[in-house]
C-alpha cells in the first residue's frame, strides 16, 4: 500500500503545492503545511474508496487540512511576509505582465478567508461548480453565491483605484 501511495502522491503532488501556495505566505509555512497534508493523506488513504476521482479526494483532504491546521501566531500581520521569490515564475514562461498579475493575485488572496481561498483555488484550477461542491462538501448554490462574492471582492482588492 505504501508503494502505491507514494507513487500516486508523486504523480499528483502539484495539488499539494498549489494548496500550500494559496494558504501560506512564507516558505517555512508552505513546507510545514506540505508535510501536514502529506501526513493526513497517508492517514486517510486506507479510507479512500475510489467512489470519487483520486484528485477530488486529494483536494478534499488537502483543503480540509489547510483550513483546520493550527497556525502558530505570527508577529507580522497576514500577508506581510510575501517575498519577491513568492511571485517568481520559471524563466521559460517569464512574462512581466503575468508576474505582476500573480503578485496582485497573491496579495489579494492573502486577504480572503479560508473557505474563500479554497473556492478561488478550485476556480483557478478551472473546476466546475459541481466539482467544487463535491470537493468542499457544500451545495452548488452556496458555491455559486460565494463565487460571485469572491470575484467581486478580488476585483476590488486588485483594482483599488476603481473604487
Amino acid at each position: 500500500m505504501e508503494k502505491e501511495f507514494l507513487e500516486i502522491i508523486r504523480q499528483n503532488q502539484g495539488i499539494i503545492h498549489k494548496v500550500c501556495s494559496i494558504y501560506c505566505d512564507s516558505e517555512e509555512d508552505r513546507n510545514d503545511l506540505f508535510q501536514e497534508i502529506l501526513a493526513q493523506l497517508w492517514k486517510s488513504f486506507p479510507s479512500f474508496r475510489k467512489e470519487s476521482k483520486f484528485t477530488t479526494w486529494m483536494y478534499r483532504v488537502a483543503l480540509n487540512t489547510a483550513i483546520t491546521t493550527f497556525k502558530k501566531s505570527k508577529r507580522q500581520p497576514a500577508g506581510s511576509r510575501l517575498t519577491v521569490e513568492s511571485f517568481q515564475i520559471a524563466d521559460e514562461v517569464y512574462d512581466p505582465a503575468t508576474e505582476e498579475n500573480i503578485r496582485l493575485l497573491q496579495q489579494a488572496v492573502a486577504r480572503l478567508s479560508g473557505i474563500e481561498k479554497s473556492i478561488i483555488l478550485l476556480f483557478l484550477e478551472s473546476k466546475s461548480y459541481e466539482e467544487i461542491a463535491e470537493i468542499t462538501g457544500i451545495t452548488q448554490n452556496y458555491v455559486r453565491v460565494k463565487m460571485n462574492r469572491i470575484k467581486k471582492k478580488l476585483v476590488k482588492l486588485m483594482n483599488p483605484a476603481e473604487e
Binding site: 498549489k18 476556480f123 476585483v155
Partner: peptide, 23 residues
C-alpha cells in the same frame, strides 16, 4: 484586470512552482 487573466497567470505560476519543487 479580468479573472480570465488571473486563471492564465495562475496556471503558469502553479506549473512553474510544481516543477521547481517536485519530490
Amino acid at each position: 484586470m479580468e479573472l480570465k487573466d488571473l486563471q492564465k497567470a495562475w496556471s503558469q505560476f502553479s506549473a512553474s512552482q510544481a516543477g521547481k519543487k517536485e519530490l
